[in-house]
Design a protein around this nucleic acid. Structure first.
Lengths: 249, 249
DNA sequence: CACTTTATCTCGTGA
DNA sequence: TCACGAGGTAAAGTG
């Protein structure tokens, strides 16, 4: 493939790449494809971000820029899953050449956030057509746990009767509201991973609210695969309960 | 540059790339560079993940794999900042050819999680040397807010005396513990962005605990740039207070 | 190592 | 649009 063939042909192809391109070639690729392709720019660059917070990558070194057609903009370094700088979608990419240097400006409208990248040395640039999986689904989420409990309440305790799921209250939504065999209201808070202090606190909030509103005893149960020691102490301090439930059951 | 020169020379260079490579060439690049370079593989692929949860990208379509020397492994699609599938560092990458098809297996030890990617069509593969910014710093975090308040407690109210920061209790850590001009304990919970019901609930947890432990009135203040309407109602309901504080002040 | 909390969290959902 | 809460959260810091 002619590496610069795209210059003479504005019809998008699946992928195009430039090796050690002059800035104006990279610029043209970016502007032609930024709304349809995922762009990759590899080179020596500096960058900075200002918006909700502020930070700077002032030392010139090789980094990797990834820009997606939805506005996602990321500056990756050698380590970590997270980009060092980024703008989430929807953001807008503006590329220019300033003093012979490629400059990428990603602007997020609300909240106003700007990432600016200067690339004095462009080693590689590419425009790639990527797909998107439809009907993507993850199994083993909290919702699946809630379903499992609703379908089989005895996994919490015998005689439990489900009253509602996602029961809305002034202080938040209760995962499962139920009634035990003795007629007590039971609030169940599900966590797909180990429950910590926040989970207990959340449950306590719901239970306190219902106790006050109903004027009678209300039980609270954390349903999770495990609970931290501190959270368990906290839970017992307030007379709440824990049930072991695996997220994939 | 000879696109296959790396084959005859195991000395790492800054970047190498293969265009429409045969699987065994891509395999060799991956195995030579996976521990030192960031790898990019673009092609048509299917993938699946199993670990804490489970999901599948069963439809063959163009996707982008990024692998970092620390074990970061990501499968990106056309949209979103988040990879569709991933393993965080530290994970291990194992590449093989199975029935003529490049197979990438990323394994995380604990918790055990596996991402498997099959790439029947490899359009592009590259090994890139990336840098890492040292002494990286973000400005405008919650810690900066806490510092600002400790250095100038009057931004909360006059006569406030700081007693402790990160004060540990049975139910969690208090951002700032202080005493007001009348001798009341004051718990301050800082949020760098708008405070929601959870922030208020967190504060209530600390205040309730101290009230009980100390047997005397304890004030609670949420310090944040703003607070949601629901959170504010909730806050007033429990006799807590709100102070406007900007994260960059 | 486990636990706790923050985050420029991101993302989906529902009002 | 905003608010709220889950997430395979990841990453940092502490005991």
């Amino acid at each position: 493939m002619d590496l610069t063939s795209f210059m003479d042909n504005s019809r998008p192809s699946d992928y195009e790449y430039l090796i050690d391109p002059a800035p104006q070639y990279a610029l043209k690729l970016i502007n032609l494809r930024k709304n349809t392709h995922v762009l990759i720019i590899y080179g020596d660059m500096v960058a900075n971000y200002e918006g909700r917070a502020k930070s700077e990558l002032g030392e010139l070194m090789p980094r990797l820029v990834i820009s997606k057609p939805d506005g996602t903009f990321m500056v990756h370094e050698a380590t970590k899953r997270e980009p060092r700088l980024w703008n989430p979608p929807p953001s807008s990419l503006y590329a220019t050449i300033d003093g012979g240097v490629l400059v990428l400006r990603s602007v997020r409208a609300s909240p106003r956030e700007v990432v600016v990248v200067e690339v004095p040395v462009i080693r590689f640039a590419a425009a790639l057509k990527l797909g998107t999986t439809i009907n993507y689904r993850v199994f083993g989420r909290e919702e699946d746990m809630v379903n499992a409990i609703i379908n089989n309440p005895s996994m919490i305790e015998d005689g439990l009767q489900i009253l509602a799921r996602e029961y809305h209250t002034l202080v938040g939504d209760i995962d499962i509201l139920a009634k035990d065999s003795r007629g007590n209201l039971v609030v169940i808070e599900c966590k797909r991973s180990q429950a910590g202090p926040e989970a207990v606190n959340q449950l306590k909030r719901y239970v306190d609210y219902l106790r006050q509103r109903e004027g009678k005893p209300v039980r609270g149960i954390v349903a999770a695969p495990s609970i931290s020691a501190a959270a368990y102490k906290f839970l017992r301090l307030y007379g709440l309960e824990f049930r072991h439930v695996e997220p994939k059951s």
